[in-house]
């Protein structure tokens, strides 16, 4: 395993672009702390984000995993190009001839992916912990370490997304097209949701668009950590004033986790089959 990680790391580390992207990713996670510094003062209206309670334990686990979740796009580029470049440089062929098995090729990518997920989750944990300790109104140990399942959801979300990226990179063989496909796929999920919402209940009574939509890979990933904004007391107060209430379940969603893990398995298995079947 160390050998496979070393192989993949060598390929990534010597590539200037992936080195920059990796550095950017972790810097951005760290710099999320600067959100805390957002202060808006327009005449009598004073708004200081850190005082809105976003850094309160345990809410911070939810908020930070959600926001940092968007940074995964940086990593999508790395994963897709690390898969596709093996085809464009024809180094996959050379690696196999040099004695790497197809299974090892895939494993070296998966291990690297897992290493990044672990690193990213730890980074998110540390950043949130530090921010929370500085800004949180509650600092009892039991409160600090409650709701940590958001970090688990975060790791699963990354695993699902990266597996999808890896599959697209290997399948399409061109990094740019694979990323394009990812965007098209995202839109396709949205459009099919719209269509289902419009027609599905008419065709099959009792089946709503939400029933089907929760099984779509990208939607399931976003369901893992729901948007945290409507949970803020400030926002809820405003909502109450206009007569609206949010009765969302913001917690850890087991169905979504299973769906995402299921898709991850499908993507990785499909990647392995592609590697096995293709003649180079």
């Amino acid at each position: 395993m160390i050998r496979l990680l070393k192989i993949e790391w060598t390929k990534l580390y010597h590539n200037k672009i992936s080195r920059i992207l990796i550095a950017c990713y972790f810097l951005l996670i760290t710099f999320i702390a600067f959100i805390a510094a957002i202060k808006i003062e327009v005449g009598p209206i004073k708004f200081h984000l850190a005082e809105q309670g976003i850094f309160n334990f345990p809410y911070i686990w939810h908020f930070n995993t959600f926001i940092i979740g968007y940074m995964k796009v940086f990593f999508a580029i790395i994963i897709v190009s690390m898969a596709a470049s093996e085809y464009s440089y024809k180094t996959l062929k050379q690696n196999l001839i040099d004695g790497l098995s197809k299974k090892e090729v895939l494993l070296s990518k998966i291990y690297t992916m897992l290493a990044f997920i672990v690193a990213s989750t730890l980074f998110t944990f540390m950043t949130s912990l530090v921010l929370g300790l500085i800004f949180s109104d509650y600092t009892e140990i039991s409160i600090i370490f409650s709701d940590l399942e958001y970090l688990v959801a975060y790791a699963i979300k990354l695993f699902g997304f990266f597996s999808f990226c890896l599959f697209l990179g290997i399948w399409i063989k061109r990094a740019a097209f694979a990323l394009g496909f990812l965007i098209v796929w995202q839109m396709a999920e949205g459009i099919s949701y719209g269509l289902m919402k419009w027609q599905l209940s008419d065709w099959i009574p009792g089946l709503t668009a939400e029933h089907v939509f929760q099984f779509f890979p990208l939607n399931a990933m976003s369901n893992l950590i729901k948007e945290p904004f409507t949970r803020l007391s400030g926002i809820q107060n405003i909502a109450k004033q206009v007569g609206e209430t949010f009765d969302k379940d913001y917690g850890f969603d087991l169905t979504s986790s299973l769906v995402v893990l299921g898709w991850s398995f499908v993507f990785l298995w499909a990647t392995y089959r592609l590697l096995q079947k293709r003649d180079l």
Binding site: T10, H14, K16, Y89, T91, K93, N95, I97, D98, L100
Partner: peptide, 27 residues
């Protein structure tokens, strides 16, 4: 040891780095 058709290496790596990578693969 084998070379087939065209030499395939990582273009952004030096000769030394490429050969060391081959060594890691070949153990």
């Amino acid at each position: 040891g084998a070379i087939i058709e065209r030499p395939n290496f990582y273009p952004y790596m030096t000769a030394m780095q490429n050969l060391k990578l081959v060594c890691t693969i070949k153990q």
